[in-house]
């Protein structure tokens, strides 16, 4: 079994979409896969997928000792893809960001136990939709997973900060287990104007150098797809249909990941 987390230093880069589409690509090739929504700040799977059947969530599991993991797993939510949801975020003291240090230590301990249980249940792949930025939660999820995918958007805004955060995180993770840390360009908007294309290519090349210097490996690049973006605005979008819009792209990414 492999555990993979999709991460970014800020919201809106496409973590959730990447997590789901990689999940769909995995089940389509017969891998038993579960996606865990672990973005406690902005859990979006509940909104995107309306067919949640299990009341218990990932948070319930992390803070209680007597919950059976199968009671969290919502089977076949998109095709054969299983999902574990998170509760809607609460404001104030009940917000998970307010939890004491001890809560997060226990959470990591429980998460690693859950990983063993999922393996015993026959899962081939666990995908964690991580919280943006650096927090106890996001770092715990990085520790949980031996594969991470940093989802980046080509924009000067945010990449500088991302670079210094990455440095910190990868120092922390060094030697944690046999790891593979990738980055993925997402929402790459290719325009027809030659000069603008050149500018984008130069930008990507510059950051490819800087990110590989940090020890990250390039997973690939996903185009900005306007149709996809618009169709996801519908209530209850059919994600299988959306996946088909850019399936080659995700199948290629999946090939690379499975080769690790």
């Amino acid at each position: 079994m492999r555990a993979l987390t999709v991460y970014s230093t800020r919201g809106g880069n496409g973590k959730t979409l990447t997590a789901l589409f990689l999940g769909i690509a995995a089940v389509k090739r017969g891998l038993k896969t579960v996606v865990i929504d672990a973005d406690f700040e902005a859990p979006s799977l509940t909104h995107l997928l309306s067919n949640q059947t299990k009341e218990l969530t990932w948070v319930d599991y992390l803070e209680n000792d007597n919950i059976d993991i199968t009671d969290l797993i919502n089977p076949n939510i998109i095709g054969n893809l299983d999902i574990i949801f998170s509760p809607p975020p609460r404001i104030g003291k009940n917000f998970l960001g307010w939890k004491a240090d001890n809560w997060w230590k226990k959470a990591l301990q429980k998460a690693i136990v859950a990983k063993k249980e999922l393996e015993l249940l026959g899962y081939d792949l666990v995908i964690i939709d991580n919280q943006s930025g650096t927090s106890y939660n996001s770092v715990n999820n990085m520790v949980f997973s031996e594969i991470s995918i940093m989802v980046l958007r080509p924009s000067n805004y945010g990449l500088g900060a991302t670079e210094s955060i990455l440095k910190e995180i990868f120092n922390t993770l060094k030697g944690m287990n046999r790891r593979m840390d990738y980055y993925l360009w997402n929402q790459v908007h290719r325009v027809s104007d030659q000069d603008e294309r050149l500018l984008l290519d130069q930008f990507l090349e510059k950051w490819d150098d800087r990110l590989t210097a940090l020890g990250l490996k390039k997973l690939g690049s996903v185009e900005y797809n306007i149709k996809l973006n618009l169709e996801l605005l519908n209530d209850n979008p059919d994600l299988n249909d959306q996946f088909n819009l850019i399936k080659d792209n995700y199948n290629n990414l999946m090939d690379t990941i499975l080769n690790f």
């Binding site: 240090d101 990591l108 770092v139 520790v143 030697g175 287990n177």
Partner: peptide, 22 residues
């Protein structure tokens, strides 16, 4: 399991600790 603490340990200890928490 407090990763911030774990990585503050001297190298030889944090190396083993990273294995143990698995």
């Amino acid at each position: 399991f407090d990763i911030g603490f774990l990585v503050s340990l001297p190298d030889e200890l944090n190396f083993l600790a990273k294995k143990l928490i698995q």
